[in-house]
Amino acid sequence: MARGLPAAWSAVLGLPFVAGGLYAVVRSPNVPSEAGLPFIGFGGFVILLGLYIQFVAAPEPPTMRDGEEIVETRNPAQRAAAVKAAVGFVVLSVAGYLLFFTFLPYVYPLVTLVGGLYLFSTGLYAYWTNTLTTYYVTNQRLIKEYRFISLVREELPFEKVRGVEERRSVWETIAGLGNVRVASGGGRTLEVVVRNVYSPTEFADEVRGLV
């Protein structure tokens, strides 16, 4: 089962779309009733994908080698995704108001809808992707696991690590977040980028200590 409550949060985010769509179908005088169907469909998509992520998609912890043990487990922070989804949700609410409760030409609600959908969708998939991503630091390897339908596992043995790079933008510094890039040397460089983690300096130092 995935960490957090993606099913519950997805329902919270998806149900307003279903409700808005039903309103349009049943009684909005300002749009044809079928205009509510895409809203219902999108809301249903969000709710169902949240359920899938909660109960089906989460990856299992990696199998440990002999003498190997997990030192630390990290997950990407959800703060940026949540803010993006929330702002997108507000913009989409404005779009719904313009579409269902006013008689302005469609260009106004639709432009708002496109902007809101971009923010909301990018925030939502970031939230879901973060939910399905886990970074494991063992005493031998750094492992990134992601599973939506198929499993993606990236790992880097510490004996091959040639560099640990830490990056924080201004906004990430303010939010207490950062990215840590761990890379091997040589021709075909292996690397694992640990994104959007809290206390990245501490994490980077921990990796350096294991190298």
Partner: peptide
């Protein structure tokens, strides 16, 4: 002038 076409397109792209 049909919001069904336009919103459906937007939501499908998003999905």
């Amino acid at each position: 002038s049909n919001p069904f076409n336009l919103t459906t397109l937007g939501f499908l792209l998003s999905v």
